[in-house]
Computed example of a mutant assay.
Amino acid sequence: MKLLYCIPRLDTSGGIERVVVNKINYYVQECGYEVTVVTYRQQNRENFFKLDSRVRQINLDAPYPISYEQLSFFKRIIPFRKVNAYLMTKLNQIVSETAFDYCISILMDDIAIIPKLTDSSIKVGECHGILNEIVYCYRHSETFFQKLKWFLRLKKFHFFSKKFDVLVFLTQEESKLLNYSIPLEIIPNFIVCTPLNDEFFQFNNSKTAVSAGHLIPLKGHARLLDAWRLVVDKCSDAHLDIYGSGSEEETLLLKIRELKLTDNVTIKKPLKDLENHYGRYSLTLLASYYEGFSMVCLESLAKAVPVIAYNVPCGLQHILKGNNGGVLVEDDNANAFSAAVIELLESRELQRKQKQKAFSRAKDYNIEIIMHQWQKLFFKI
């Protein structure tokens, strides 16, 4: 079987990039598929996560303006037309040279292009929470122009996504935001779940917590710091490590100083093997305003590390349903969040129970289980 994957870039440390790379490697290593990956915003930068050497990667240097990220939504329209025309030409050339069985998009900038490709491959749209993000930003826009921008992005998503042969969502809730006649499938993210030594299930008295993700407003690190200040008021030796990089880093460093948390919070650079470091922490904390299907959460559970998170759409509500492996806290309730953190840091019995539940829950998303669903989908459509 031959697959073509289209994704803007693989040089960043995000959850989407990690999932896509792990999935592609599984297709090659376990299924024997031939996979070609096309990136178009990477500009020949090195991949953050390692692809199997048998994967063919094509980096298309699409003509995005240097200042594209700083342009307003409306000022992007003209350069984006040039990008679309360029990608259409290049992708049609690629599919004309190889007879792909499936062409897979993660529904980003190429959402308008993939369904129009002239080959006979089945077009699959793989939604990693982008629709949930658009809807969230639309509903929480503070100005008319912000609301208009996200309204137009939502209309664009609706218009082009229905042209795919099948759409795959991480959760049922996100799929319900659409009302299409095309097939909609639900396949969550996965985790590599390996047996753990007994020490992983013992009480961790280090009073350390970890969080990870792009340092951008939607990840909620600012409100996480507010809650952590309340934790430190009760547990002065508690320490939080935040792994990530992004536009909000300087703002967060300033907030850490303002809250007098310089001895209790450290911002660290992203790690390629962060999943191997979760086990030394007592807890994982997530304060995002929404989540697709958090890899940080899944990777923590796989190391028997309980997760405390705000109850936001959509994936966390499934993973931590019934407080299995952690605690879902009322959204934006810093007092409840900090209370849950303190209780799990200090209670030996509760922490041990949640560690057992965490690892048990992670097994439900083991890679073999989830990738079997993808294989069934390919042979069904």
Rank of each mutant, 00 (worst) to 15 (best):
I16K: 09
V19Y: 09
V21M: 03
K23Q: 13
N25S: 08
N25M: 00
Y27T: 04
V28T: 08
Q29D: 15
G32Q: 11
G32I: 08
Y33C: 15
V38C: 11
T39I: 03
T39F: 06
T39E: 05
Q42Y: 07
Q43R: 14
Q43M: 12
R45L: 12
R45H: 14
F48Y: 08
F49V: 13
L51E: 04
D52S: 05
D52E: 09
D52H: 13
S53R: 13
R56K: 15
D61V: 10
Y64Q: 02
I66T: 07
I66L: 07
S67E: 15
Y68K: 01
L71V: 06
L71H: 05
S72G: 05
S72F: 00
F73Y: 15
F74L: 14
F74V: 14
F74I: 12
R76M: 07
I77C: 03
P79E: 04
P79T: 04
P79C: 01
R81N: 00
R81V: 01
R81W: 02
K82E: 08
V83I: 15
V83R: 02
N84S: 05
Y86K: 11
L87A: 01
L87Q: 08
L87P: 02
M88T: 11
T89R: 06
K90V: 00
Q93K: 10
I94V: 14
I94W: 09
V95I: 06
S96W: 09
E97Y: 08
E97W: 07
A99F: 05
D101T: 12
Y102A: 02
I104D: 02
I104R: 01
I106G: 02
L107M: 14
L107Q: 09
D109R: 08
D110I: 05
I111S: 04
A112M: 04
I113E: 05
L117T: 12
T118I: 13
S121G: 01
S121A: 15
V124R: 09
V124M: 08
